[in-house]
Amino acid sequence: MEVRTIKVFTTVDNINLHTQVVDMSMTYGQQFGPTYLDGADVTKIKPHNSHEGKTFYVLPNDDTLRVEAFEYYHTTDPSFLGRYMSALNHTKKWKYPQVNGLTSIKWADNNCYLATALLTLQQIELKFNPPALQDAYYRARAGEAANFCALILAYCNKTVGELGDVRETMSYLFQHANLDSCKRVLNVVCKTCGQQQTTLKGVEAVMYMGTLSYEQFKKGVQIPCTCGKQATKYLVQQESPFVMMSAPPAQYELKHGTFTCASEYTGNYQCGHYKHITSKETLYCIDGALLTKSSEYKGPITDVFYKENSYTTTIK
């Protein structure tokens, strides 16, 4: 009895394709271990004539594949690729409408935090270190965002349907971005203890939790000093293409032309909904596939993004 075979390709990165001759009487799992086709788990399936010449994702289970996976995804987590594939199996079914010149995501599976993050990423200057993220990001900007969303979920250790947080998501993504040249110098002034300067680099240099107003941050924000008295913390120097200011959701007025974009969060910790506000020729609110415009805006804002380049204080 002759062994019926077909020729397929296996890959971990969709760049390096490895030619395989597979036995049609055995499952993919018996031949390769966990195997995925377009995100779908085909591990328990036997090869079919229609699979001839198709590319299958496999887990990096030998040295060659491990090197290829690390170079593309910059992670050695053995569960990463499987999590990416199972997320992709959902995100490829989502709709990605162009809204006001940006790629958004039609609401499904509690994905409003991903839509808000995706919209924000198209408006701030950011370059990702893992080629996987950078490639998928370019495709997302062009309207094909399924891979990018699935990668975000995998890097953030999230599953489809789980509630997510924009600030946490951005923080994970910033860790995989090139923020080497970003720098922030802060000064804390206390009447009792004097003053202390701190220099922050990388992710810490672009994120701040405690106030939404970048102007206020430049002037000074009140913080408790270690001595128990009130101290003032203010920005001395900022070198970065953008800054992200966050605070627990509270009524906040966004003035046209003073910011790049913002995240609105309605609801409580267990259950809520994100919308995205962007400042173009007027203010726009993007909620999944829905767009509304207004000249002014007041609502429960939790993150505001500002364009920056270089700032030095005039406070002496």
Rank of each mutant, 00 (worst) to 15 (best):
H276C: 14
G257E: 07
L121N: 01
K127R: 12
Y269P: 15
M85Y: 12
V3A: 12
T258Y: 06
H51V: 03
P249F: 10
Y73V: 06
G101T: 06
K158G: 02
I223K: 05
T314P: 03
V236C: 07
P224M: 14
K95W: 12
Q134M: 06
L37C: 11
Y137L: 11
E162T: 08
R167I: 01
T198R: 12
S263N: 10
Y274D: 04
S295E: 15
V160K: 07
F217K: 04
T278E: 09
K233H: 12
L291H: 12
Y155M: 06
L17C: 15
Y155N: 06
I223N: 03
Q237H: 15
S279F: 00
M170R: 00
L17A: 08
E144Y: 10
Q230N: 10
K92G: 07
G82F: 14
W94F: 04
V166R: 03
A146I: 00
D109I: 02
I277Q: 14
I15N: 13
A289W: 08
S310W: 08
A150S: 02
I105N: 04
N61A: 12
L88Y: 11
Q20N: 13
Y265N: 01
V58F: 11
E52G: 10
N187K: 15
M170D: 03
P224R: 14
Y73R: 03
A150G: 02
F174S: 05
F174L: 12
Y172M: 14
A108D: 09
S50H: 14
K201V: 11
I301E: 02
K54D: 12
S263V: 13
E308F: 09
L65Q: 07
V243P: 00
V3W: 10
H276Q: 02
T27F: 11
F32D: 08
R83M: 07
V221D: 04
T103W: 10
D38C: 10
T116P: 01
S25K: 15
D109L: 01
K44N: 15
L283V: 11
G228V: 00
A231C: 06
T43E: 02
V160G: 01
A146L: 03
I286T: 03
T64L: 10
T258M: 10
K233L: 14
L17W: 00
A136Q: 08
D63G: 07
G202H: 03
V160C: 06
V221N: 01
K54E: 11
H276M: 13
G220F: 03
L121R: 03
H90L: 11
A115N: 11
Q251D: 12
D287K: 05
E239S: 07
K191T: 14
K275Y: 02
S181A: 14
S294N: 10
G257P: 01
G143L: 05
T76D: 13
R66Q: 13
K201G: 09
P47I: 10
Q237K: 12
P131C: 00
H90P: 04
F32A: 09
P249R: 08
K218N: 00
F259R: 00
L126Y: 02
T169R: 08
F305H: 00
G39E: 10
L121I: 10
D63Y: 07
A140K: 02
T192S: 14
Y208K: 00
F217G: 05
I315N: 15
G143V: 03
K275W: 05
Y234V: 07
K46I: 13
N129P: 02
N111C: 09
H18F: 10
T103C: 08
K46L: 13
C227P: 01
T75R: 09
M85K: 10
A177G: 04
V8E: 11
A117E: 05
S104N: 06
R139W: 09
G82Q: 15
E253H: 11
H276R: 00
E52V: 12
L126V: 13
V160L: 07
W107S: 04
I105T: 02
R184D: 02
A87G: 13
K229S: 15
M24A: 14
Y297L: 07
S181T: 12
A117K: 02
V99N: 09
L200D: 09
K183E: 03
H18V: 06
N268W: 04
Q20L: 08
V67N: 15
F9N: 11
Y137P: 01
F56R: 03
E239C: 10
P248R: 15
V189G: 08
E125V: 07
K219I: 09
K255A: 12
F217L: 15
Y311S: 07
P241C: 03
S50M: 13
F259T: 02
G101R: 04
D23F: 10
M209D: 11
S50L: 14
K229W: 07
Y172P: 05
N147I: 10
M209W: 15
R83V: 03
E162G: 08
T75V: 11
D303F: 00
K229M: 12
E144W: 05
V203I: 15
L126M: 07
P248I: 02
S171Y: 15
L133A: 05
S295W: 11
H176P: 05
S213N: 13
P224Q: 13
N111H: 00
K218Q: 04
G29D: 08
N61H: 11
E162W: 01
E253V: 11
L173F: 08
R184H: 03
F174V: 01
S310A: 11
T5L: 11
M245C: 15
Q222A: 12
L114S: 00
T159P: 09
G82R: 14
L283N: 05
A250Q: 15
P130S: 07
A132F: 02
V206M: 01
G299M: 02
L200Y: 11
Y138V: 14
G202N: 04
K307Q: 15
A145N: 03
G220L: 03
Y28G: 03
Q175W: 03
N14L: 08
F217S: 04
G299A: 10
K127H: 13
K44I: 12
Y72A: 13
K127Y: 05
I152P: 05
F259I: 05
